[in-house]
Design a protein around this nucleic acid. Structure first.
Lengths: 191, 191
DNA sequence: TTAAAGTTTCAGAATTTTCTGAAACTTTAA
DNA sequence: TTAAAGTTTCAGAAAATTCTGAAACTTTAA
């Protein structure tokens, strides 16, 4: 089984990008090939098309299933497992995001929380802890925001992205109002 | 020069996370240490504190400067270079995002565009190209959105993140209106 | 039961990435 | 000029990651 040319170039590129996207070359290639294929593929199809070992394919599909990016199906009277992508492009992208946050943000958030529980031992530690708190606050709001966005259905997400700049305009206007108010009543108590 | 304990644990963690965040352990550690330090640090400070070679530090600070995450300063009557973080936590986070997009999304967008220029050679290629187009559209709106967000000043960003869920509610409401309208006038021409 | 058809595992090989440290280079000032 | 104080480079060593392929395992059906 050999890949049609356009598929091949996409698959190869996705393999190269794999490591930047948090998975390795093989996983990237397998994922891309599943997405590009109209039909579900067997482990042997993948192994042949990509020229990688059967064992490697096995690890890759396992990993993709753990990322919830691929699923398995069976065909009538056929014992082989057929792999296919777990949803449309949008759904897959959302899952990749979700997983990356889990791997990239959550562990840091947890370490950062532990550090904030500690008693600072030196003045430098006090400074460090203040910085860690900033990191904590930022990661936490980021994380919450991502949660919120993920609750949205894919269509709302699309809408939101299209909204883009206009959203920014609204916010800036709102903030200008606030700072004007502060300038007018400079001696009002801080709340 | 030895790091105070809280700093040390943060720095070590950041080193471990380094690779997931798109840079290696050393770069992660150097960056974290710069952020945690009240004073700017010399290459030797970094090398001593982190227990890594002078050459490695040199590469790391170079890389951090190329990411625009660190800057150099000099002190009166002192030839050494002193490194410090290029902005507050929020500004640094924004830069990390920007850089990651540049490294993770832009190359794919470019490959994807090339593929869309090609003439599909087989029916499979046609299917593949349709999928690639979906990927393209998604990446492009994502990229545009990120651009828009980056234009915002840090305070607006904070506000936006805090807005979180409520934003989603608004959008869902808006969409409900749309689909209701469609249900009421099912035979109206599509525009 | 047995064997055929398939999947998974994992030790070690291959590859890739990172790190060291010595040598080369640069800058400053005497 | 020269040398001291510093920085950078890069070949090869070390470490980490990925991949292979043979053996072990599982499932199904005759």
């Amino acid at each position: 089984m050999t890949m049609p040319p356009l598929t091949a170039s996409f698959v190869l590129h996705f393999g190269e990008m794999g490591s930047r996207w948090g998975f390795n070359r093989t996983i990237g290639q397998v994922f891309a090939l599943l997405v590009m294929s109209e039909e579900a593929l067997t482990a042997n199809d993948l192994s042949d098309s990509l020229g990688i070992s059967r064992g490697n394919v096995s690890m890759a599909v396992k990993e993709l299933q753990s990322w919830q990016l691929a699923k398995v199906m069976h065909r009538q009277g056929d014992r082989k497992e057929y792999y296919y992508p777990a949803g449309d492009i949008m759904a897959l992208a959302i899952k990749v995001f979700e997983q990356r946050r889990k791997r990239e943000v959550d562990p840091t958030l947890s370490v950062v929380r532990d550090i904030l529980m500690e008693q600072p031992a030196t003045p430098q530690d006090e400074y460090a802890q203040a910085k860690v708190r900033e990191v904590h606050d930022l990661l936490e709001s980021l994380s919450k925001w991502a949660d919120d966005l993920q609750q949205l259905n894919p269509d709302s997400l699309q809408t939101l992205m299209k909204l883009g700049t206009r959203m920014g305009k609204v916010l800036e206007f709102k903030e200008r109002l606030f700072s004007d108010a502060a300038a007018i009543e400079p001696e009002s108590p801080k709340t």
